[in-house]
Amino acid sequence: MSRKSCFFARLRAAGALTGALLGAHALSACSAGQSYPRPSYAAAQVSGASAAPRAESLREESAAVDSDVAASAGFAPVAESPAATSAAPSPPPLPSAPGGPSRPPAAMPGRGPAGRTTPASSPASNPTAAQPAQAPSPAPAPMLVYTADVRLMVEQPQITEVLDRVTDLAYSLGGYLVRRNNSSVQVRVPSSRFRDGLRQVEGLGEVVQRSINADDVSEEFRDIEVRLQNLRAVRRRLEEFLARAANVTDALAVERELERVAAEIDRIEGRMRFLSARVAFSLVTVNVQPRPRQQPIVPEERPVPPRQLLNLPVPWLDTLGIGRLLNIR
């Protein structure tokens, strides 16, 4: 086999591996409610009979670089940074995701609402990051997205004041305002202060209704995390291929594949940032309704029947009146 044909065979095999990996994770992502397009490249390239064994060999090669991939996955190593763990004390009663040792939210507290996660950190800065890939760590803390709905009843003139106080409370806890109207306000507070914030909100009026929901996004996050690792491995391999490309045609083909993989990586990183933000900041919706005025219980208005009259046996009472008086004959 010539050197050129060998190169293309390896490239096709890499494409097949990419497609297989992306396809498998697309299924899990779709089951989690997300739509990830299944790459058409896989379907087009996997049909080659000689591609399968080479894909196997590439998969083995990619496994060999797992440690590098884990280090470059970004989120896990960041979570172990001392600054992150110190900035996010986990509330004891609510095992929220920010307290998890290997989860992105742990790296997020303290950031503003528009804070951005930097998923990729260099392996050099976190030499322990490769450990989870070699020895499975204990079950990570679940990543929970907390949402609370509270309905308060206050006096009519106090509605605006209560809404203001909820907004101020969110800011004081490090959160931010999401939306507000005349009778409700929606804020996000750091998950580590979620319970504290909720308690303070409930002190602003009479709680008519309260509901708290915890949505576990751990599975989705793990799926896309693994998918990201694999895509980065593929990208690394493609970069190696690109460096070894013998001519322009080969280089262009590899570039196209690199571009597609990079776009997919960006999408996954965006999704991870989104989930991390949701986990790090809990949503609290407060609806305020006026207290109904206390009205005395009045029986249903019924027409009072006329008083029953006593018919006195006194005929002259009926002769009283101006008609008879003025009747002069």
Binding site: L309, L312, P313, V314, L317, D318, L320, G321
Partner: peptide
């Protein structure tokens, strides 16, 4: 007749009127 006092007759007259 019937034998009654002023309060009775005055009240009876007012009621009837």
């Amino acid at each position: 007749r019937p034998s009654a006092n002023l309060a009775f007759w005055s009240r009876a007259i007012d009621e009837r009127m």
